[in-house]
Nucleic acid binder design. Structure first.
Lengths: 111, 111
DNA sequence: CCTTAATATACACTTAAACATATATACGTG
DNA sequence: CACGTATATATGTTTAAGTGTATATTAAGG
């Protein structure tokens, strides 16, 4: 759950096509061909994106005959889920952060 | 909460320096100079990243004299938090997705 | 084995985006 | 209004990453 790993995960799934692959795989495992047909890019591109997703541990693949079935791994999403949870202070806190900041600035100016 | 907007938010905060800015601002509002000193990049770069963060609605700025104080907006993070919550099926579900998929495949082969 | 289907890799090309540097703007203060 | 501080913008350059096309690999079936 270190931030470097999370940052890499973030960068990886931020790419539009990989984002779409992730959204598709959320519904369940899919073969490469199924992914190709769902997206609007070529097969080599899909394979390449799957490799990147695989190398960062976001997906895994299992072999079923001549097909490879890709599915999402839980861990990276669990980490990101936890990270985004930590931002809940933004909408849960009553007091205005900006005011806090101003008070702090003024205090420093005083001395 | 449409996925296109979220995708843009994702892409925006995935960039390493902007990721760092976001992590810093999570602690509270900061002036541009404070951000420059916290990060290891030049002032023009910080201003540029802040502009991008601003244009995508991730931060807002308020003017305090000659300084501009940047702070995080809640909405984009709320959206992403909700999105990542939706992945909890990955670690909450008992049954193995792969097995499901296989059963489905076999069913199709039957007919 | 030979062929086909499914998937992966190699490579040249293009482009988006970050960076460094220089310069502009805006505001406060004497 | 002149000067310093804080921040923003403009521009040329570099580089990372996606794309398209061609080709390689792997497995199944006759």
């Amino acid at each position: 759950m270190n931030t470097t790993t999370m940052q890499i995960t973030l960068q990886t799934i931020a790419e539009p096509n990989r984002f779409n692959i992730v959204e598709l795989l959320k519904k369940g495992p899919r073969s490469v061909n199924e992914i190709v047909m769902a997206l609007n890019i070529g097969q080599p591109q899909v394979s390449r994106h799957l490799r990147i997703l695989s190398e960062t541990g976001i997906v895994r693949s299992r072999t079923k005959g001549q097909m490879r079935i890709y599915s999402l791994e839980a861990q990276p999403f669990q980490d990101l889920d936890a990270w985004f949870d930590s931002f809940s202070v933004l909408w849960e806190e009553r007091l205005d952060n900006f005011e806090d900041y101003m008070i702090d600035i003024l205090r420093k100016e005083d001395k």
